[in-house]
Each structure stands twice: as C-alpha cells, then as structure tokens.
C-alpha cells in the first residue's frame, strides 16, 4: 500500500511538516475556546458562572477555618439573636448557633453531597443507558428489567428506612445511599438516544473499520450525545442539591449535629421562625434558589456550545 500510495500521490514524507502546519492554521477552534466564546456572548450566564465558582471556592475554603463541633454547641444566652448583634453577622438560631457559619459549613456539605451524588449516579446511569441501548436485544432486555425493578421501589421510603437502620452514617454513606436510587432517570434517557444513535451509518462505518464495541460506545456514540449528557448532568446537579435538602428538611438527611442547607431550611418548620426570626431560614432558601438558577444558566451555555446550530458566540 505504501509504495502504491507514494507512486500515486505527490505528497511525500518531506512535505509532512509544512502540510500539518498549514492544516493547523485552518483548524477549527478547540472546544474550550468555543465554550468560552459562548460565555462571552451571554452575560447572565457569565455572571452565573462567576457566582458559582466564587461561591464554591469561598465555601470550600472558609469551611476549613470553622470549628464545626464548637460552632454547634448550644448557647442559651444568644437565643435567636438578631443579625448584627453580639457579632452574629446573620444572627443565631434557637440554639444560639451562628447562622452565617452554619450556612458556610452547610453549603459545603450540601454541595459536596450533590456533587458526589451527581458524579456517581450520572456516571453509572450514562454507562447503563449506553450499554443497554447499544447492544440491544437480550442484553437490553435484561438491563431494562433491572431498571424496572429499581423504579418500582418506593425511593423516599427506602432511603428513610436505610438511613434509620444504618447506625453511624455520615455525608459519604448518605451519598452512596442516594446514588443507589438516582441513576434510573438518566439511564433511560440515555438509552433512548443511544438506540437511535447506534442505527446511524457512522457506527456501521466504525464497525467495518474494525473498532471494538466499547470503543464505539464511549468514543463514537458518547461524544455525539454529549449535549444531552451535559444538560442532564447539570439539571440533575441542581436537582440533587434539592434531594439532600429535602430529606434533611424532613429530618432524615444528615444527622442533627452536621449543618446543611436542609437543616437550616428545616428551621422554617416552626411558625415562630417564619413570622419573627426570618434570618434562621431565609438565607439558606435564597442561596439554594440562586445556586440552582446559576447552574441551569451555565448548563444552557455548555449545551449551546456543544451544538453548532444553537451557538450565539462569535466564531472567533
């Protein structure tokens, strides 16, 4: 082959460097560049990105300087102290514990759980959906029956039961328990797209080019459904913040002595707090709203940059 190619093509090894330089000049911009251009074109998303990055960095670093057990000690003298009094920036709750510090540690815990949960459940769900959709037939049948079984289990009840019977649970075990139940939605969404994607000719072309099944799944099909993956992952991240918060609000999330956004919002259970001591629950609620909105803005931009026809950013 090499000989006949050399005979029929004017290009030889000597031209390689010049030509590849030429090609580099004509190359389409890298995907990081495209995403950045897209952010520059969408100001609200840029603001959202700054909020998320700054907030997460602040929370992660600031939480290191807070002595949580000491902070969570009850201090009867500062019962529901108003914001600004006695050095309480955002006031204190019924136990006299500072809201501001609780907010920092709580946000770190909640975001950490949401991230861990998103990474584990999305990775598993995406792999499950891709494999099930690509191989089809008997494998698909078996995998989907497992899915059906998992869907059938009453999720919230199972989590509450598990949290109750596991004695010493913390943020990590809680994340793992959630992960068992939160991969299903993703998996079926991905499966349906994979089913249609694996019928396309480029998959057949990859097969005739001798590429193996798993390489086709993860390096040919997966990049092609990436916009779906990104949207689903960002949305489920925003949703997963809510999962932990909701359960902690009901009293089955993190243990009492570990602050989280959910335990802070749970302060709103008390009518007294709602009417008089707004500082005990409002900051956490606002934080969740702002965070979830920002995440979905960022997700939209990333999705647009993954799909050439939706881009708003300048080409360069």
């Amino acid at each position: 082959m090499e000989e006949s190619l050399n005979r029929h093509s004017k290009i030889s090894a000597a031209d390689l460097e010049r030509l590849s330089k030429e090609a580099k000049g004509e190359a389409t911009p890298s995907s990081a560049r495209i995403v950045w251009n897209e952010f520059k074109a969408d100001k609200p998303a840029m603001v959202a990105l700054v909020i998320i990055v700054a907030f997460i960095l602040f929370v992660m670093i600031a939480a290191l300087f807070i002595d949580t057990p000491k902070m969570m000690e009850t201090d009867i003298m500062n019962y529901n102290a108003a914001p600004g009094t006695n050095g309480f920036i955002l006031g204190a709750d019924t136990g006299g514990r500072p809201i501001f510090q609780q907010l920092i540690v709580g946000a770190r815990n909640s975001i950490g759980i949401a991230m861990g949960l998103t990474v584990i459940s999305s990775t598993f769900g995406i792999c499950w959906g891709l494999i099930s959709g690509y191989f089809n037939g008997l494998i698909d049948w078996g995998m989907q029956r497992v899915y059906d079984f998992m869907m059938m289990l009453p999720m919230t009840m199972m989590i509450i039961v598990l949290v109750t019977i596991i004695k010493n649970y913390n943020a990590i075990t809680l994340t793992l328990i959630f992960s068992v139940f939160y991969w299903e939605g993703t998996s079926r969404l991905i499966r349906s797209r994979t089913l249609s994607e694996s019928e396309k000719d480029y998959v057949a072309a990859a097969k005739t080019s001798g590429t193996g099944n798993f390489k086709i799944i993860f390096s040919e099909i997966m990049p092609n459904i990436s916009s779906l993956l990104i949207v689903d992952t960002t949305l489920s991240f925003a949703e997963n913040i809510g999962v932990e918060t909701g359960l902690s609000y009901l009293g089955f999330g993190l243990p009492m002595h570990t602050p989280s956004l959910g335990t802070l919002i749970a302060n709103a259970n008390d009518p007294n707090n709602i009417t008089q001591y707004w500082w005990t629950w409002l900051p956490a609620a606002l934080l969740i709203i702002i965070l979830c909105l920002s995440i979905s803005y960022v997700g939209q931009v990333v999705r647009r940059s993954a799909d050439a026809s939706q881009r708003q950013g300048a080409a360069d």
């Binding site: 190619l5 093509s9 090894a13 030509l19 030429e22 090609a23 004509e26 190359a27």
Partner: peptide, 22 residues
C-alpha cells in the same frame, strides 16, 4: 507515517491538507 498516509489519501481524492483538522 499515519499522518502522511492520511495526507496522501486526501490528495488522491482531490482534497487539500487543510481538511485535516476540520
């Protein structure tokens, strides 16, 4: 040599080298 082969193949079907990274 892989890149060279690709460039030669592109040449045979009448396409320029700048197609490489498109």
């Amino acid at each position: 040599s892989e890149k060279l082969r690709v460039l030669q193949l592109l040449d045979i079907v009448g396409l320029d080298a700048d197609a490489l990274y498109k």
